[in-house]
Design a protein around this nucleic acid. Sequence first.
RNA 1: CGGGGAGUAGCGCAGUUGGCUAGCGCACCGCGUUUGGGACGCGGGGGUCGCAGGUUCGAGUCCUGUCUCCCCGACCA
Length: 422
Amino acid sequence: MKYSNSFLRTTKETPKEAELISHQYLLRGGFIAPTAAGIYTLMPFGYRVADKITKIIEEELRAIGVEDIRIPVVQTARPWKESGRYYEDIDELWKIKNRSDEDFVLAMTGEEMVADAAKRVISSYKDLPKLVGQINLKVRDEARARGGLLRLREFMMQDAYSLTKDEAQLDEIYQKFIDAYKKIFERVGVQTVVIESDTGSMGGSGAHEFMMIAENGEDKIVSDGTRAVNAEKIGISKEDELDGAEAQTKVKESFGDAQVEFMRGIEVGNIFKLGTKYSKPQKLMYLDENNQQQPVIMGSYGIGVDRLIGSIVEASHDDKGMIWPKNVSPYLVHLIGIGDGMQSANGLYEQLKDSGVEVFYDDRDVSPGEKFADADLLGFPYRITVSPKTLAENSVEIKVRNADEMKLVSLDEIVETVKSWM
RNA sequence: CGGGGAGUAGCGCAGUUGGCUAGCGCACCGCGUUUGGGACGCGGGGGUCGCAGGUUCGAGUCCUGUCUCCCCGACCA
């Protein structure tokens, strides 16, 4: 893509609404366009990152046997009334009506819909286990959206569901998801820890969260080095309570005399052992080996895709801009032409494109400084500069975004060199 | 939902005790000069000052109401 053709405008100044560095850079780099609190239009670069994350997630989940489905974003309230959650006064649940005054809810999660659909499929223990999932919009009427992409009212989320006959089968699948999630976060370049968490309004017998440790994360984590829990789970919620006697007692109950430390984190994934919380009231049953009706045991597994984008930037940036991990960067190469180097840059752009390289080409007639500043802000892994200076050596200059050195590579070898990065 | 802050051009901001044609920087358009770290000159375009009502000869400025956005907290599948 050429800069001059792209739906892109970067800004030098930081929009005043942005406090967090990820929010600032994503706005300045034109990755997102705000529309309302917590609701953004994903611009081309933002879309490309989301797309890459999506593909990585799909690959890893298909590898453990998850089958793709699509759950409605506009959901009839009937199953929600069956499960009881419709009446539970969940503030985040966005309730709407159609023109005939019938009740619907927007997709806060998909448990009810999956349980409902599963009734068409499951009748015997021989039908279990089953794994289904999707990557689709979620809508939650959050009391307070914040931090750019870190807490949204509408967002893309991967949510998968397991249907099993008993706890043993659930445990086995639960562990598969933990392993798959670890691979996903590793591939997108985010370091996470798995912690024990509260089940919240999801209900069920257990839950874990994947936390990216970050100073400005919303969640508080208590860890003794071998085991970590969400502070919420052991009844600690306020920051200033952490050193208090009450908090110390709660820590002791959970950790004994072990030395603990407090950390903050961003929750990028969350998994639940739902048990029969949905299957019982919604009557999702199967017939066991002894011809007895049993409720299906469910689990659910989610990753916030948009939040992950924000988290990656929080974790990977410098004072000039973002630093995208190769696997999720909008483009691999940021090509810059300077002065009389433009002609050759045009040619190189076509060559790279023809070779299947994801290359973004700054073909604008603006000063070199502006192009370099944009390249730093946008943060693609490799910058290639073609200028009279490099052409005098019959070469181009390569700079890796997260390293200081630059080096010259001859024009004859540059395409092959770039291909070796793919 | 409680507390705090803010709405003036796409973005960042100024606008005195109410006063004349509402300004500045960036961005944008035209011409020219520039070309390795956000260049320069000259000339331009763009505003119902969040919205509604009120006070006044006169409101961006004062009063009332209302909407929206941001930050802290509560909450958080």
